[in-house]
Design a binder for these strands. Structure first.
Length: 421
RNA sequence: GUGGGCGUAGCUCAGCUGGUAGAGCUCCGGAUUGUGGUUCCGGUGGUCGUGGGUUCGAGCCCCAUCGCUCACCCCA
């Protein structure tokens, strides 16, 4: 057993008992996107490494340390996608979908990052994402947030809070970055090791440090919100006004910076209270510079992505889970002529029923036990006596009701009546 | 990459200061020679993660290694 092959670290099997919750999430999400006019798009799992270096940022951990990158047989540098936005922009540009259009897309699928796994973080993980192009107004940022809020509502998820912030324009950010470097640089002695490193690489990240000894210093740090340009300020104010009007509660978290280089203006995160340290259920924001960065004409864009494992975990934590699918009936057969059981099952399925057919020569008792454990509402019994007289036994397995023996020709009608009850 | 916790049956776990490996659940069979769920009885199933060391003797002690898990980093 110990020499048996195991799944790759951080890449998990989704077993049948868990699949119902996943299918429910996917079905509800699909319905909501349809109701908002978002079109599904499916991209390859593999892209050129360069795409991610140019979008997410060559100096970010995701690209530097966490990409599954490899050379294919022609020598091209490829990578398993670590997120969906870059590929979606690439696909939209490649197929001319952004020309004089304002498309809204959604997608769903696995992403890959080489990190140490922990609760809510895996090397292969599933995201449901959306991207909207060509709309500069805060209204579309708000629509995305309302859409996710609706998703939580329809799924029955509670215990999530919305945090929002703005990163302004690249110019706003550059000015702010210098302020931060000056501020934290002036208190270099108070910084922990991680923050000293961030001071060089990505000063904004110091803001969301978890180190307790850093909190006081961070509280006193300058806030981007205070030095925002007029247009940026107006964009953020409008977003807040819309959320207020729509009665979506939120917290302004001036420390929320998010990791990817391409964000501008609005950033937001839904945080789940039932998760571990990896508690961001959904992250998103605006990325007005990315389309141009990837070779398109300048075009505003905004989007989000949901970590489906985290969403499913949260749903379980609040006690919302999908009932597992059970068959309508189970066909038991002992000493029946060859094919009788399968043909009976086929007739039942033709009538729209879900049927499990016993397919081995197990004893009567054993087959009936299987029927019971399958969750089926009725057992159809094809035994020696029934076969001899051209009849079938029909036994309700749930609640009241006596077993009855009916003519073979009445099988479907009888079962259908019972199993709908 | 760094740190903590944990590896005993398919699952959840017990196992005394070292003395021949256990329970519950699951599964299979029987009590009921053609009737499930409750009950009772019986059975299948383990190189105690792996390798080495100490010892008359190791699931238990020591070293190493692998795996899982949680946290840091980073992020969905």
């Amino acid at each position: 057993m110990n020499s048996r092959l195991q799944a790759v670290r951080g890449m998990n099997d989704l077993l049948p008992e868990a699949i119902g919750d996943w299918q429910r999430v996917e079905a509800v999400a699909r319905g909501i996107f349809a109701d908002h006019g978002y079109a599904e798009i499916r991209m390859p799992l593999v892209e050129r490494s360069e795409l991610f270096a140019r979008s997410i940022g060559a100096a970010t951990d995701i690209v530097e340390k966490e990409m599954y990158a490899f050379q294919d047989r022609s020598g091209d540098m490829l990578a398993l996608r670590p997120e969906g936005t870059a590929g979606c922009v690439r696909a939209a540009l490649q197929h001319g979908l952004l020309h004089n259009q304002q498309p809204r897309f959604w997608y769903q699928g696995p992403m890959f990052r080489y990190e140490r796994p922990q609760k809510g973080r895996y090397r292969q993980f599933q995201q449901i994402g959306a991207e909207c192009f060509g709309i500069p107004d805060a209204d579309i940022d708000a629509e995305l947030i309302l859409l996710t809020a609706r998703l939580w509502r329809e799924l029955g998820l509670s215990g999530v809070t919305l945090e929002i912030n703005t990163l302004g324009t690249p110019d706003d950010r550059q000015v702010y970055r210098e302020q931060l470097v000056a501020y934290f640089g002036g208190h270099r002695g108070l910084l922990d090791e991680d923050s000293k490193r961030r001071l060089e690489q990505n000063p904004l990240r110091i803001l969301d440090s978890k180190a307790p000894e850093m909190q006081a210093l961070i509280d006193e740090a300058p806030r981007l919100l205070d030095s925002l340009g007029g247009a940026s300020r107006a964009h953020f104010d409008r977003l807040c006004a819309i959320l207020d009007r729509a009665a979506v509660s939120y917290e302004i978290n001036t420390r929320l910076v998010r990791g990817l280089d391409y964000y501008t203006h609005t950033v937001f995160e839904w945080v789940g209270e039932h998760l571990g340290a990896q508690n961001a259920l959904c992250g998103g924001g605006r990325y007005d510079g990315l389309v141009e960065q990837l070779g398109g004409k300048p075009l505003p864009a905004t989007g989000f992505s949901i970590g489906v494992e985290r969403l499913v975990d949260s749903l379980r934590a609040v006690g919302v889970s999908a009932a597992s699918a059970t068959p309508d009936c189970f066909v038991v057969s002992v000493a029946a002529p060859a094919g009788e059981a399968l043909v009976a099952a086929e007739e039942l399925r033709d009538a729209g029923l879900a049927v499990i057919c016993n397919c081995d020569a197990a004893g009567f008792k054993s087959q009936l036990r299987r029927a019971d454990r399958s969750g089926a509402r009725v057992a159809v019994i094809l035994g020696e006596q029934e076969s001899a007289t051209g009849q079938v036994g029909i036994k309700p397995l749930r609640g009241d009701g006596e077993q009855q023996t009916v003519a073979r020709a009445d099988l479907v009608a009888t079962v259908k009546q019972l199993s709908k009850g």
